[in-house]
Design a binder for these strands. Sequence first.
DNA 1: CGATTCATTGATCGAGATCAAAATTGGTGG
DNA 2: CCACCAATTTTGATCTCGATCAATGAATCG
Lengths: 242, 242
Amino acid sequence: MDTFRNRIAQYVDAPMAERIVKTLTELDTEERTDGPGAELVRAGTRPNRLFVMLDGWAVRYRLLCDGRRQIVNFMLPGDLFDLQVLGDLEADHSVATLTQATFLCVGATGFLQALREAGDLASAFWWAAVQEESMLREHIVRVGQLSARERIGHLFLELRRRLSAARGGAVNDVGLPLTRTDLADMLGLTPVHISRTLSAMKRDGLIEENHRTIAITDRARLARLSQFDDSYLHVRRLVFTD
Amino acid sequence: MDTFRNRIAQYVDAPMAERIVKTLTELDTEERTDGPGAELVRAGTRPNRLFVMLDGWAVRYRLLCDGRRQIVNFMLPGDLFDLQVLGDLEADHSVATLTQATFLCVGATGFLQALREAGDLASAFWWAAVQEESMLREHIVRVGQLSARERIGHLFLELRRRLSAARGGAVNDVGLPLTRTDLADMLGLTPVHISRTLSAMKRDGLIEENHRTIAITDRARLARLSQFDDSYLHVRRLVFTD
DNA sequence: CGATTCATTGATCGAGATCAAAATTGGTGG
DNA sequence: CCACCAATTTTGATCTCGATCAATGAATCG
């Protein structure tokens, strides 16, 4: 639960974070741990619950009928996801774990009830949705305009920042439980090209890699080179005027 | 205001739609008409109001420092946008009109007040946010996986459906107030390639074009060919259990 | 009508895709 | 500790879709 607490502590104060965590755990929740490859949400169904990622990674992806796969985003520890479920709509994408993962399943009806009773909670969840939207827009820019090298650098920098937020302190090493194919499906490239571009980036001293962990050698340079704007994820506190 | 009423009538019943429209107009709103190229939201500022597009087109876009532009999405008549403003955050993208456009500006504080007083309104606005997110995800798939021809077809089909929703009835002709460059910046391609691909699509009898209006000749074929899933925008009614 | 913006067409180039083979890695069990 | 296996990664050769550069041809609008 620490990852989630760290996450929301970015935008609400500590007592509020505590209250949110408390409200959430007192609801009709179930903590589950699944192995890698477990499908949490299947496209076309109505999952009627939302998830809090506590540990491990998951992906939201879309499969095309000819087998192409686009990963839409990663779910990292601390992420709250499928707030869309509040509309009781069919999922248009699937979500599956990438690693062994521990997460909280929260029933939608109970969650809605809690929202209605504690209106100030709503602002925090609204914020989560806004932040996710922001990441989606950034991903569109990434895939629409950036070169292979820019895309990879840009993604690594985003992951670094998000993992720092979950951990509650800056990290510089990004442990990536991803195959080249996963990266490729995220970035709209092929695994072969991911491999080649990563090699070139290592050769140029931008990153290092060992045991599936990426170390960002020179963050400022990588950011400049990747068109990464370090401020785009809003980590300011919410000011819901009351 | 009809376009907006038609839009939300997709997911709430008529009296509710009427109430939402009434609440909105009674707020601290201003109806404005701007020429093409007017900047409604500037990246980096805090706009502290939201907009209802009544007529005309606008784009949300991001400029990179070397001049590249990625259009993130189009705002069509009936669209409510910048709900993110409720968090009082800096905009990470700009919004500008593409044509002459009429829109409603709603002050954020008044809107928040209304939300708090009429809780059932919230569900409708939540729905709008969910729908926008859904379109963003679909755009990621489009730009990440589809070929030039697929991207164009896919976008046209989405625009057709959205324009139909605003009009309150199916249309088959999509009036596009877009230059090749706009399309290119939306789809991550170059204007030259847009032009060539459009020509090929006309040659193949997929679309026709005259006076900036696209007619979709064979919708089923275009949908199949573009990997367009006609059901992805959730037009079901909200079932917020109360 | 000019003038300016936008679209088309042609020629060439290049980033990334594809296909295929070889090299690494990471278990698993003896 | 080593041998074996499957999955993943790397490397090489070649191809292609879309980019780039540049010129020509419509539109649109004072």
